[in-house]
Design a protein around this nucleic acid. Structure first.
Lengths: 112, 112
DNA sequence: TCGGTATATTCCTTGACGGGAATATACCGA
DNA sequence: TCGGTATATTCCCGTCAAGGAATATACCGA
């Protein structure tokens, strides 16, 4: 359960991460939002924290959990070499494949 | 073990995928390249196939396994909404460190 | 100090996975 | 048809994860 991938293997943990996209939340908030006992939420948050997906900031008795780039970056980087696999299949329609020019000239393209 | 994420949780399976980036390979090839028994390779390939990462093409007794976009796309799409997390951190690292305390203020308590 | 609140941890049971060994299945060439 | 080759499947076992229940820990307000 140490790796980031293993942490993502449980749907509940992915739901927690999805939930945290709305902003930091406490264990109780997440437990209620996802309909699971407090102990379960706490345990899974511990695993997500250990894997580097989230971070806890103490505020008296409560812990505000928030997303952390760490593990996401790890997964994204592993996935990167496979990008061609699905990319030149998704834009199969426009043929305007100017492949991988990620952070080069991303000034004004908000009308995608 | 049904989801793509669960399939990625085992290092050996990720190694198989990495290996397949070089092109299609047979079970025996992969087993030898990764130093595992044939049965182990076959079993893990079955899991990867079930998860949609690879595809098997029969050629007499051998099976040529090749990468398949399916599951990669699934993972990539799930990861996409989190992209801002690590992107505007690689770009402007060091300025956006106060993202997670929008609606509460810290009162200089690093030594309590 | 004393509840009351919020979270973490432990114990326990059930179920599933990973890997080894052996066997089964499918196919080739002669 | 008969080995020989390549792969899949089954059985077994050690290990570990998930969840529930209960408890422990830490902190607040009065």
């Amino acid at each position: 359960m140490s790796t980031a991938y293993a942490a993502l293997s449980l749907p509940l943990r992915r739901e927690i991460l999805d939930q945290l996209r709305a902003g930091p939340a406490t264990v109780g908030d997440l437990a209620e939002a996802l309909g699971v006992p407090q102990a379960v939420a706490s345990k899974q948050l511990g695993i997500l924290r250990e894997a580097g997906f989230v971070q806890a900031r103490a505020d008296a008795q409560r812990r505000w959990y928030a997303l952390l780039p760490e593990a996401f970056t790890e997964v994204a980087q592993w996935l990167e070499p496979y990008r061609w696999l699905w990319e030149d299949r998704l834009d199969r329609l426009g043929d305007r494949l100017d492949q991988m020019q990620e952070h080069d000239q991303m000034q004004e393209e908000e009308q995608s």
